[in-house]
Amino acid sequence: MTAYSQFSDLSYTTAAAIYVLAMLFVLVEQAFGRVARQRVAQRDLAKQRALVGAGAPVADGDGADATHDAAVPAAPSAGRPASGRPERFGRMGIALMVLGALLHVAALVLRGLAAGRAPWGNMYEYLMALSLVAVVTWLVLVRKYPLRHLTAFVLLPVVFLMFVGGTLYVEAGPLVPALQSYWLVIHVAAAIVASGMFLVPGVASVLYLMRTANEGNPRRFRRLAERLPGKDVLDRIAYRTSVLAFPIYTFGVFAGAIWAESAWGRFWDWDPKETVSFVAWVIYAAYLHARATAGWRGKPAAWINTAGFACIVFNFFFINLVTAGLHSYAGV
């Protein structure tokens, strides 16, 4: 028991340290790799044009009724030889991130073995699993789209959450009777996966807003903005991830209601946790609506998405630590 637990703790800290290292590596690419990257991108684009034939315009997706899906550029073609040292740093950063993720998985699995149950029964474990989901989501995206140089923006909140998780550490142990249910596995897992995935659109939307601010006033976020990809790319990353996370979140809320029905006698009680989950859900529904409403795409949508993630963070920290509700025993 305790050996598992100790190895879990060790893996957790090591994973966090490796993420920090990975962050430094991708920051090197960020700082020095821009010019080289642009050159490559231009060459790629030229190649693509040649392949596709004459003039395939890249629609910007703001048409009144149809938004097209062509504009996220394809990942730099596989097998292309490494160009430049900064790029190599970037790729090493991603490799480190994969290594960190493997240790992160190990930390979670060992924790589960140590406690003899699904390893998401308290805030420490919840944050451990959530940050892992965010990392994996990002790795999947980086495989598909050329977003590697943005990795630090995702790793920063991840490492922060892992640090906060560390301060909420508790010994691995069994759960109080109220939490002994397979619905814990289902409901909390859905909440974790959805929240972890929502972290990515949250980051993309904040970056989007920074870019907009920079366009309005070139002095704001100047150093940052010139390293960011186009707004349309950020917008699509946010949208595509949200669209996958939203049904999972919805399912998580429903599963919670089913569990509440068998545990507390009522499927919905407007308990603070339920309420804030509901609010977050409505905000994300509003986000999806905004994306389909003329005049609300772009900046307003990015604001709404950011608010949605803020609500999820608030739900976790404020509601668990400050208010007292039926959910509070899940606490620290």
Binding site: D65, A66, H68, R236
Partner: peptide, 8 residues
């Protein structure tokens, strides 16, 4: 042409 902008 895709009428909605999901990936794929």
């Amino acid at each position: 042409l895709a009428k909605t902008d999901q990936a794929g």
